[in-house]
């Protein structure tokens, strides 16, 4: 779907990335690492200084001449609805601009406005809306045109928990039906769960690109095991444990799952003491990103 080849632009320096159709990619990296630049390159707002960016084999800006919306992009700070128009008027314009049949479009609108919960202020001018209300309406505007590639820059900014959950639900449904999503967000609550891949940008390149499972084992391979023991405190001095914590008869071990497995630890402990309860916890993706 999206191909970056040796792209140089602003902080990006020699970035190569292949995003197959149907994937949902989360972009990670510190501020100023080029996440927004990457998204703007993918929709044609920016042109690479060197290298190439292609969407389905064409330059992103060439897709604009196509009447079928292929790429739809949401950026915070890029107003998608005119501030003087009402929400309804803004959507009517979007419909006309993309030539979408009335019935199909307003059906889509009805569903989205209900799920993202903004039917109550659809007749108010966009400038009168609060940030959260505006974000809901604008996210619906990029979804309503039914693109094949959706680019989202900080879609969570301004959304409350309900909004984040609703957005996630919609995105994973659309994703299952083949929508490709690339999103950058400093607030990955929910979004992390939705991503099939992650790309970590560092020094202008993709320092990591792969599944969440691989991301964890490569960057935060520390698991947590809590053991409630009956007898005396076991000795685990020779095990490669990162750190441990003892509260009464509750022992918590933090260990690198690449170096030692839960089974090995448990076997050692069981030879020394009676175990009443065991809990193993892998770090959640959200806590990681």
């Amino acid at each position: 779907m999206v191909d970056f080849f040796n792209v140089r632009k602003f902080t990006l320096d020699g970035l190569s990335l292949h995003i197959p159709a149907g994937e949902r990619v989360g972009l990670l990296g510190g501020p100023g690492c080029g996440k927004t630049t990457l998204l703007k390159l993918a929709c044609g707002l920016l042109v690479p200084e060197d290298g190439s960016v292609q969407v389905l084999g064409m330059a992103p800006s060439d897709w604009r001449k196509d009447s079928q919306p292929v790429i739809s992009a949401y950026f915070t700070g890029l107003p998608l609805l005119d501030r003087n128009d009402t929400v309804r008027q803004g959507f009517e314009l979007v419909r006309c601009i993309y030539h979408i049949p009335k019935k199909k479009f307003w059906e889509e609108y009805r569903v989205l406005s209900k799920r993202l919960d903004f039917t109550a202020f659809e007749h108010e001018a966009v400038k009168e809306l609060s940030l959260g209300q505006r974000v809901r309406a604008e996210l619906s505007a990029v979804l309503a045109v039914r693109p094949r590639l959706l680019l989202l820059d900080e879609p969570n900014a301004g959304l409350d928990e309900n909004g984040k959950a609703a957005l996630c639900e919609i995105l994973s449904e659309r994703g299952r039906r083949g929508l490709t999503v690339v999103t950058a967000s400093s607030d990955m609550v929910g979004i992390a769960k939705l991503c099939t891949r992650f790309a970590l940008l560092k020094d202008g390149k993709a320092a990591f690109y792969g599944s969440g499972e691989r991301l964890r084992s490569q960057f935060v391979p520390v698991d947590e095991m809590t053991i409630v023991f009956g007898g005396e405190l076991p000795d685990f001095g020779d095990l490669p444990v990162v750190r441990y914590k003892i509260e009464g008869n509750r022992l918590t071990l933090f260990y690198n799952s690449n170096h030692v497995t839960a089974a090995e630890i448990l076997k050692r402990v069981l030879t020394q003491t009676e175990v009443l309860e065991v809990k193993v916890q892998k770090p959640t993706l959200e806590s990681m990103v």
């Binding site: 929709c43 604009r64 009447s67 919306p69 992009a73 950026f75 700070g77």
Partner: peptide
Amino acid sequence: SGNFDRFILRP
């Protein structure tokens, strides 16, 4: 205000 970017994105 970023409105021109929106115009660019539209067909």
